[in-house]
């Protein structure tokens, strides 16, 4: 097990397309780090650079105390779980688990011991002699995990490992991966575009966009205090309501004075908009109801306010009964506002 350190890492393709713009990141020993971002943001490229599947244009990647820039993937002592699992179709599950160990010259008794142990942990013992095509998606996923575990590597690298599973299985496997990683204590880097997965798995979350890191932090900190418009919009489902400040001023006379100068956009989380009047300082917006989505325990209400370009979404506990066209009064407390600078889109300092 080891820490992973990236220093000014840059990736340029064909000399002109830059995928990663000089990026620094340090991952502690035993930490579970999730790289999240939209497709094309460079998160997979970054992971593959750590794995040794992509070359590093400039900068330095260290695993433990070793600079690995020029090492083959196999020499970096990492294991990887791929999105499509990449199980060897002609080998049995056992063959898949053993292959990496055999290539490393691990003694036979040790191979058998590790394979059995991994199979036990992942509950795939009954399938050891089957071929991958005879397994369900979830079982294949476990085999792919097993192939990583048996190697007892310095780090696990996960490249969207759950995105080929259906929603229910994805939820189960998410919990399981988290538990497994806690038990083994292996440093892990996990790439996903699914912000829910990112929130639930990460010790440390890295939000990426267009080849740069937007924000690093604990998942809840990032959710509560997004440092940029991009993070604000990307994290959370439905995302934060983002309203142009000038339009908001046209609608609300008593906006709080605490909004910093230079602010261009105000963000409000859907759960921070109330239909009932709160006790603390707030302002109100009059709107009409557009649509209601009942999601079981809560309702998502889409409201249209005259003068705003997009519908405002709010989250309300329980079942909201209402019809399109109903008038609504939206109550927004002063302390829930997020202000972002017009110039840069970064968070405005208070």
């Amino acid at each position: 097990m080891a820490s992973i350190t990236l220093t000014s890492v840059k990736k340029t393709y064909h000399g002109n397309v830059t995928a990663i713009h000089g990026l620094d990141l340090s991952i502690e020993d035993g930490e579970f780090v999730v790289l999240v971002g939209p497709s094309g943001c460079g998160k997979s490229t970054l992971l593959r650079m750590i794995a040794g599947l992509e070359t590093i244009t400039t900068g330095e990647v260290r695993i433990g105390n070793t600079v690995v820039n020029r090492l083959e993937p196999a020499e970096r002592d990492i294991a990887m779980v791929f999105q499509n699992y990449a199980l060897y179709p002609h080998m049995s599950v056992r063959g898949n688990l053993e292959y990496g160990l055999k290539n490393r010259g691990t003694p036979r008794p040790e191979i058998d011991r590790r394979v059995l142990e991994a199979a036990r942990i992942l509950e795939i013992e009954p399938f050891l002699d089957r071929k991958p095509r005879q397994l369900s998606g979830g079982q294949r996923q476990r085999v792919a995990m097993g192939r990583a575990i048996v190697r007892q590597p310095k780090a696990f690298l996960f490249d969207e490992p759950l995105s080929n599973l259906d929603a229910k299985l994805r939820g189960q496997m998410r919990v399981e991966i988290r538990r497994l990683q806690r038990t083994l204590g292996t440093t892990s880097v996990y790439v996903t575009h699914d912000q829910l997965e990112a929130m639930t798995l990460a010790d440390k979350l890295v939000v990426m966009n267009a080849g740069v890191i937007e924000q690093i932090g604990r998942p809840l900190d990032i959710y509560a205090d997004p440092q940029s418009l991009f993070v604000a919009a990307f994290m959370g489902s439905p995302g934060m309501n983002l309203v142009d400040i000038e339009r908001l001023r046209g609608l609300v006379a008593d906006l709080p004075a605490s909004i910093p100068s230079g602010t261009g956009t105000i963000g409000i989380r859907p759960e921070d908009i109330a239909l009932d009047e709160p006790a603390t300082p707030h302002f109100t917006i009059s709107a009409t109801l557009e649509a209601v989505e009942l999601v079981g325990s809560e309702s998502l209400i889409y409201a249209n306010a005259q003068g705003l370009s997009e519908d405002v979404v709010l989250r309300s506990q329980g079942i909201h009964r209402g019809n399109p066209g109903d008038p609504l009064t939206l109550h927004i407390r002063h302390e829930v506002l997020h202000s972002f600078l017009r110039e840069t889109g970064r968070k405005a300092a208070a």
């Binding site: 794995a51 040794g52 599947l53 083959e72 993937p73 196999a74 990492i78 294991a79 990887m80 791929f82 999105q83 499509n84 699992y85 990449a86 199980l87 060897y88 179709p89 002609h90 292959y99 990496g100 290539n103 490393r104 192939r147 190697r151």
Partner: peptide, 27 residues
């Protein structure tokens, strides 16, 4: 053949000859 097949084999320590013999030929 998915690109990941060769990537997985490389992470597993297979060089070009081993990958050819162990993975590509059987496939």
């Amino acid at each position: 053949i998915p690109d990941e097949m060769m990537e997985a084999a490389r992470v597993d320590g297979a060089g070009p000859l081993k990958f050819f013999r162990d993975i590509l030929l059987p496939l």
